[in-house]
Structures are given as C-alpha cells and as structure tokens.
Amino acid sequence: MRTNNKLNKPENRSFIEDARRAQIVDCAIEVIATKGFVNTSISRIAEEAGISKGVISYHFLSKEELIQQVVMEVYQAGAIYMDSHMKGKVKAKDILKAYIESNLAFMGDNPKKIIAVTEILANARTKEGKRLFDVTANDQFLAPIIQLLELGQQDGSFRALSTFSAKVLATTIRDTIDGVGFQLALDPNLDLESYSKELKILFDLATRKEEII
C-alpha cells in the first residue's frame, strides 16, 4: 500500500499513469451513471475497466478521492465547453443566453457525465455522514453569475438589482440549471433543446428592464 500521495500530483505522473487514471475515471462515470452511486464500488469500477482493484488503489487512495476526481473533471469539462460557446459575446443579455444554452447543450452531449455527477451530489457522504459535496448557494458557483448580472446593469441590458436581489436571482439561475441534471437522470429522453428555450425566455423576463409607457 502506498504511504504517500506523490503519484497523485500531476507533475509526478507519466503519460501512461495519466491515461490509466483517465480510464478509471471514465469507468467510474459509466458505473455510477448506469448502476447508481449507492451500487457503485471499487470492485465494480475495476470490473468495468478490466483491471484489478489494486490498480485503482495505486492511482487513487480511496473511493472518495476517485469520486472527487470525477466531479472535478466533469465540472472542468463543462467550464471549457461553456467558455467556447460564450466567447465573443459582449452584451450581458447575450452572455446569459449563451450561459444557459451551453449548460444544457453540454448536458445533452454528455448525459452519462451529468447523471453520474447528479448521483454523486445527491448521495455521496463522508464517513461522518456529511455530504461530500454541497454546491447549494456556494459563492464560488454564484460569483460568475452575479458578475454577469452586474455587467447587465452597467450595459443597460438588465433591470436594477440590489445586492440581495442579484444573489437571489443568481441562485435561482444556478439551481434551475442544476435541477435539469436531476431531471435528466430520471428521464434520459428529456427534450433539452426545448428546455433551454424555455429557460432563456424565463430569465430574459426575469432580468428585463421595465418599459416606461
């Protein structure tokens, strides 16, 4: 058994080790998405990958560390995907539409990743019983949306918002989008394109400036 975590540092890993870790993460996503988090074990992931449990233990110190890697990689992939779709947008109104659209488009292109992360967020707990991940009202996730709402007020796209109102709206936007992931887990045939259109209309109305008649 390894007694240190040096291998887990990217600068200490070889190309082959990185490839093996990526394979294990992909297999973990497959098992969690198809079997559910509560039915996922290192043994099942090893079976899916066609390797021994020892190989997984060599690359990840625990199931918890592997699960954290899954969530981190999916969020990073989502951020890269969304950035590419929002690139070139200047007006806050257009950026918000692209933000919503790219979120749901990523879900549509990567359903198993979304279902796996949804399973993890809902069920993963520490040994003490606390949720392993809690992104509810997390400032790290809300900050970009709040900044976007501020930009919209500056460029005239959005109505005036107090600090409190902006946080409420940002939380609603983020929670609504995250909720789509839970619905996708229940219904793999969910019409994400139509859902995206409705959300864009909804939040356009929520941020629109009142017209003076």
Rank of each mutant, 00 (worst) to 15 (best):
K53M: 07
L7C: 01
F37L: 06
L121I: 15
D139T: 14
R44W: 03
T118D: 12
L142S: 04
L7R: 06
L66D: 04
I95Y: 02
Q147S: 11
I100R: 00
K200H: 02
Q147W: 01
A77L: 07
N4Y: 02
K63D: 10
F203E: 00
F60A: 08
L149V: 02
F37N: 01
D109N: 11
I145M: 00
V135G: 13
D26L: 07
V25L: 08
Y81C: 04
L61G: 12
N123H: 12
F60C: 07
Q76H: 12
K91I: 12
R159M: 13
Y58A: 00
T40N: 00
M86F: 00
F158R: 03
L148I: 00
A143I: 12
A185H: 09
E128R: 11
D191F: 03
S102W: 04
Q183P: 14
D18N: 13
H85W: 06
M1S: 14
M86G: 03
T3D: 14
N8P: 05
E64F: 05
L149Y: 06
I145K: 07
E211G: 12
T3V: 14
T207M: 03
S162T: 15
I114P: 07
F37D: 04
G78I: 07
I114W: 10
Q140G: 09
G54V: 01
F106M: 06
E128D: 15
D204E: 15
I212R: 13
F164T: 15
I177Q: 08
M1W: 05
T172D: 12
L199W: 00
A170C: 03
T3G: 15
